[in-house]
């Protein structure tokens, strides 16, 4: 599997003292982070802690008022052009009745590398086919996305990121509304991605999945509170800071908000 821009710079993501504010309201300050190729990194924080702002900054949607972000050693706008960053949306953020098929959606991952009329080449079709095979959706490729289950839809957007050959994947709450087979397939895919040198950033407030899937964790509350190996960072003290003093579960570091996610433990 070829990934674009595999070897430029030692880090996939470099954020250096990034500040973002919206009309004077600070959403993120002094956020610094370095993530190497082949990492699965959980981005954990409450709603409004700046997770989505951080994602937007990584995708170049908001300009940091201070600090620098580099993807694969180049500025974000350049990385966009290199098709290096793929965003896998939450299912709720997508109009599921839009008249497109699974195949069409995955093909959208390749628009950026096509000519301006977006006419697919033979290699593009092969890339889509291959990506659909990896997420086990090849039989459903002609189905309108409206007829898919939540898990199948999630896999469709993962296939789009694969087809794009992105080296950095940004996943927004990937485990919400996902069935067991999809979760199993996703965990296998993530391990493959890691081996291929892709870096995955998972934004979530679901701590049990972070523990299962992520090598690294970033705890975020308006800034990067802690960053490192999951086992070291997941202390009750850190989580207490992250979730603003809500009492963490003594065993698993869950907050009272997240009890439902621990039913399987």
């Amino acid at each position: 599997m070829i990934i674009k821009n595999n070897s430029t710079g030692p880090y996939r993501i470099e954020a250096d003292q990034v500040c973002v504010d919206y009309n004077g309201t600070v959403a993120l300050y002094d956020a610094s982070l370095k993530v190497k190729p082949g990492s699965i990194c959980g981005l954990v924080g409450m709603n409004g802690a700046g997770k989505s702002t951080f994602f937007k900054a990584l995708m170049g949607f908001v300009r940091p008022s201070r600090g620098k972000i580099k993807i694969n050693g180049v500025p974000v706008s350049k990385a966009q052009g290199d098709q290096a960053v793929a965003y896998v949306p939450q299912s709720e953020g997508i109009d599921c009745s839009f008249p497109v098929s699974v195949w069409d959606v995955v093909m959208m991952g390749l628009y950026g590398s096509m000519n301006f009329l977006r006419i697919p080449r033979e290699s593009d079709r092969r890339a889509v086919w291959h990506a659909l095979e990896r997420v086990d959706l090849i039989d459903l490729r002609k189905r309108p996305i409206g007829t898919l289950s939540g898990g199948q839809r999630k896999r469709t957007f993962l296939a789009r990121a694969i087809a794009q050959r992105a080296s950095v994947l940004l996943l927004d709450e990937p485990f919400s509304g996902v069935d067991v087979p999809t979760e199993k397939l996703m965990s296998e895919l993530f391990l493959q991605f890691r081996q291929e040198g892709r870096t995955i950033l998972i934004s979530t407030h679901d701590l049990s999945h972070v523990r299962d899937f992520c090598d690294l964790v970033v705890l975020i509350n308006k800034t990067v509170l802690a960053y490192g190996e999951t086992s070291e960072v997941f202390t009750s003290e850190n989580l207490n800071m992250t979730f603003g003093g809500l009492p963490p579960d003594p065993l698993f570091g869950s907050t009272s908000l997240d009890k439902d996610n621990f039913s399987n433990e």
Binding site: M59, G60, F61, S77, Q80, G81, Q83, V85, A86, Y87, P89, G93, I94, D95, F98, V100, M108, G109, Y111, G112, F116, L117, R118, R160, Q164
Partner: peptide
């Protein structure tokens, strides 16, 4: 000329932006 891009823009503007459109 812009049909595919406009369709993508209607469907998923976030993805369109993230790939540099």
């Amino acid at each position: 000329v812009f049909g595919k891009d406009l369709m993508l823009y209607c469907f998923d503007p976030t993805h369109a932006r993230s790939i540099g459109i």
